[in-house]
């Protein structure tokens, strides 16, 4: 594991290494190194299995984080590979050639975040949302509460409380 990490650090400029638990390591690599790294891991290091791909919107830093979670079933090790791309229309390279099911993750990310994956099969078809015409709903500038109120006929009379203050009031009304 340590040697593997050394190799990755040396060869692919991995940084920000974070050992979560036994056999599970997350780290960050620059965008151009992602594809060579994944290729290398799949071909030479036994990481045959793509568990998932997902994205996080760091709106404050104006970037998306994309995470690939790879698994080596022989050594029972997981690698989380993070990378950062710009929020404004910058796409990411598709890895559907390595794993067919990556196309589905990428389709979801395209729909939910608007991250482009040029060349990925069916990437522009709707995945969960049929006929969505607003900005992608998982981007944090999308105000889901406002959208819901405008769209879904909120039933009048609904009260909303902040759980912390509400419970405090209920349980310790004297404080």
């Amino acid at each position: 594991m340590e040697q593997l990490l050394d190799r990755i650090i040396a060869g692919f400029e991995a940084a920000d290494i974070e050992k979560r638990k036994d056999g599970q390591v997350f780290f960050t690599v620059p965008k151009p190194k992602v594809l060579p790294l994944i290729n290398h891991l799949k071909m030479f290091e036994g990481f045959r299995n793509l568990i998932l791909m997902t994205a996080v919107d760091w709106i404050e830093d104006n970037q998306f984080q994309i995470t690939y979670l790879l698994n080596n079933p022989d050594t029972k090790t997981d690698l989380g590979i993070r990378t950062f791309i710009g929020r404004d229309g910058e796409g990411m390279d598709s890895i559907h050639e390595l794993w067919g099911h990556a196309a589905t993750f990428q389709r979801e990310m395209k729909e939910m975040f608007g991250i482009g994956f040029p060349g990925s099969p069916r990437v522009d078809e709707p995945f969960l949302l049929e006929g969505w015409d607003d900005i992608p709903p998982m981007r944090r500038e999308f105000d889901t509460k406002k959208y819901s109120e405008e769209t879904y006929f909120p039933r009048p009379g609904r009260e909303t409380h902040d759980p912390a203050t509400y419970m405090k009031q209920k349980l310790y009304p004297n404080d």
Binding site: L128, L129, P137, F142, T144, K145, Y147, S148, E149, Y152, F153, P154, R155, R158
Partner: peptide, 19 residues
């Protein structure tokens, strides 16, 4: 189905079925 329940502010879940 009555008022959206815990999904009341979701972008994708209806709030009132009777509409």
């Amino acid at each position: 189905t009555i008022n959206g329940g815990m999904y009341w502010d979701s972008y994708n879940t209806i709030n009132r079925l009777d509409h």
